[in-house]
Measured scan of single mutants.
Amino acid sequence: MIINNLKLIREKKKISQSELAALLEVSRQTINGIEKNKYNPSLQLALKIAYYLNTPLEDIFQ
Rank of each mutant, 00 (worst) to 15 (best):
E11Q: 13
S42Q: 06
Q29N: 14
N54G: 10
K48Y: 04
N40I: 15
E25R: 14
S42I: 04
I34K: 01
K38Y: 13
S42R: 06
L57C: 08
N40T: 14
K12C: 10
P41Q: 02
N54S: 10
E11F: 06
P41G: 04
A21F: 03
I60R: 01
L20M: 06
L47C: 14
L6D: 01
N37F: 12
A22E: 11
Q62P: 15
L45N: 02
P56L: 05
L43N: 09
R28H: 09
I31Q: 00
M1H: 11
I9H: 06
N5H: 09
I34S: 00
I31C: 02
P56A: 12
I3S: 12
L24H: 00
Y52A: 12
S18T: 12
I3V: 13
I9S: 03
K36D: 14
L20N: 00
K13V: 05
I60D: 00
K14V: 04
I2P: 09
K48P: 03
K36Q: 15
T30I: 14
A50W: 03
I3A: 12
Q62G: 14
V26D: 01
K7V: 05
T55W: 05
L47R: 12
A21Q: 03
S42C: 07
E58A: 09
I15R: 03
I49N: 00
N4C: 08
N54H: 09
L20H: 00
S27V: 03
L45A: 02
E25N: 14
S27A: 05
K7S: 06
N5D: 05
N54K: 11
T30E: 08
Y39A: 07
P41N: 00
K36S: 15
Y39V: 13
L43E: 09
A22Q: 13
I34D: 01
V26F: 02
S42F: 04
N4H: 05
I2Q: 10
L23P: 00
M1W: 11
A50N: 01
I49R: 00
K36R: 12
E58L: 10
I49S: 00
K7Y: 09
L6R: 00
P41M: 04
G33P: 01
I49Q: 00
L20P: 00
S27R: 07
K48R: 10
Y51L: 08
L53N: 01
N5M: 06
A50P: 00
K36W: 06
N4E: 02
N54Y: 05
K38I: 14
M1L: 12
L53W: 01
D59F: 10
L20I: 04
T30H: 08
K14T: 05
A22V: 10
T55H: 07
L20G: 00
I3P: 10
A21V: 03
G33A: 15
L47M: 13
N37C: 14
N37Y: 13
I2V: 13
K7M: 07
T30P: 02
I49D: 00
I34G: 02
L24F: 00
P56E: 07
L53F: 07
G33N: 15
R28N: 08
G33K: 15
E19N: 08
V26M: 03
N40M: 14
Y52N: 04
F61M: 04
S16W: 03
A46E: 03
I60P: 02
L53P: 01
A46P: 03
E19P: 02
I31T: 01
K48V: 04
K12A: 14
A21Y: 03
A46F: 03
R28P: 15
L45V: 05
S18R: 14
Q44M: 08
Y39N: 06
Y51I: 10
P41S: 03
N40V: 14
L23T: 06
A50D: 00
N32T: 07
L53M: 07
I3F: 12
P56H: 07
N37S: 11
S42Y: 04
N37W: 09
Q29A: 15
L47A: 10
I31N: 00
K36E: 15
I60E: 02
S18W: 13
L23D: 05
I49P: 00
A46N: 01
I9P: 00
R10C: 06
R10M: 07
A46G: 06
L20Y: 01
Y39L: 14
K14C: 11
K13R: 10
L24M: 07
I31H: 01
A22Y: 08
L20S: 00
E35Y: 04
I15C: 07
E25V: 07
P41R: 01
D59G: 06
Q17T: 08
T30C: 15
I49K: 00
Y39H: 10
F61N: 02
S16P: 05
D59A: 10
Q44Y: 10
Q29Y: 09
L45R: 00
Q44I: 09
P56M: 04
G33Y: 14
N37V: 04
N54P: 02
Y52H: 09
L57H: 05
I2H: 11
I60L: 10
L57K: 04
E11S: 07
A46K: 15
K14D: 08
L6M: 11
S27C: 06
L45W: 02
A46D: 00
K36P: 02
K7P: 03
L6G: 01
A50L: 04
I3N: 11
K7E: 07
G33Q: 15
E11A: 06
I2A: 11
I31L: 15
I15G: 02
I60A: 01
A50Q: 04
I60M: 04
L23W: 13
